[in-house]
Simulated scan of single mutants.
Amino acid sequence: MRLELFVDDVSESLTFYRDVLGFEVMGENASYKSLRFGESRIAVQDVRTLEPGHPLAGPGKRGLGVEFVLEVGDVTALHQRVQKQWAHVTGLKRQAWGLTDFRVTDPDGYYWRITEQRR
């Protein structure tokens, strides 16, 4: 699966996904960046490139009603990295289902649960 996130500021989103979370840039142009983290793929695209009337083109907070889940090999190390660089992050928590995770919100309000990989 690949996600495309429509954002207000592609540069700000790129900084978050590349520099804070550790995604690798795979392809890019001025209004679109393709990124990956292991097998996960996302793209960030300037929301102003959408056609007028597109259901995602309207103003307002983005990402409502969705939680993205990213499985990583070392959730503790990534959490430490994110905490140093980003204000909108929760603490690490061992969940009732047995996995440890943390939550972080990107510059446009997209909500991520970063969790350890299932064994």
Rank of each mutant, 00 (worst) to 15 (best):
M1A: 13
M1L: 10
M1N: 08
R2M: 14
L3S: 13
E4K: 08
L5I: 03
F6L: 14
F6C: 08
V7G: 00
D8P: 00
D9P: 00
V10Y: 00
S11M: 07
S11V: 06
S13R: 02
S13A: 10
S13T: 02
S13D: 04
L14K: 15
F16Q: 02
F16S: 02
F16R: 01
Y17F: 04
R18C: 05
R18T: 07
D19G: 06
V20D: 01
V20F: 05
L21V: 01
L21R: 00
E24Q: 14
V25I: 15
M26Y: 05
N29Q: 14
A30E: 15
S31C: 08
S31L: 08
K33C: 09
S34Y: 08
S34W: 12
L35M: 15
R36W: 05
G38L: 10
G38D: 10
G38C: 11
E39D: 15
S40H: 13
R41K: 15
R41I: 12
I42L: 14
I42A: 06
I42H: 05
A43L: 03
A43P: 02
V44L: 09
Q45D: 08
V47F: 09
R48H: 12
T49W: 07
T49Y: 10
P52Q: 11
G53H: 07
H54W: 07
H54M: 09
P55L: 07
P59W: 09
G60R: 08
R62T: 11
R62P: 10
G63L: 06
G63Q: 07
E67Y: 14
E67H: 12
E67F: 13
E67R: 14
F68P: 03
F68R: 02
V69C: 12
V69N: 07
L70D: 04
L70K: 04
L70N: 04
E71S: 15
E71C: 10
E71V: 10
E71R: 14
V72I: 14
G73Y: 11
D74L: 13
T76N: 15
T76E: 15
A77H: 09
L78D: 01
H79V: 02
H79A: 03
H79I: 03
H79K: 04
H79F: 03
R81M: 09
R81T: 12
V82Y: 00
V82Q: 00
K84P: 04
K84E: 15
Q85Y: 04
W86C: 03
A87P: 05
H88L: 06
H88W: 08
V89M: 05
V89W: 00
T90Q: 07
G91L: 03
L92Q: 02
L92H: 01
K93H: 11
R94P: 00
R94H: 06
R94Q: 10
A96I: 06
G98A: 06
T100M: 10
T100C: 04
D101G: 02
F102M: 01
F102H: 02
R103Q: 12
V104Q: 01
V104Y: 01
D106M: 04
D106N: 06
P107Q: 01
P107D: 00
P107F: 00
G109K: 05
W112T: 01
W112Y: 09
R113T: 09
R113Y: 07
R113C: 12
T115F: 02
R118F: 12
R119T: 15
R119W: 10
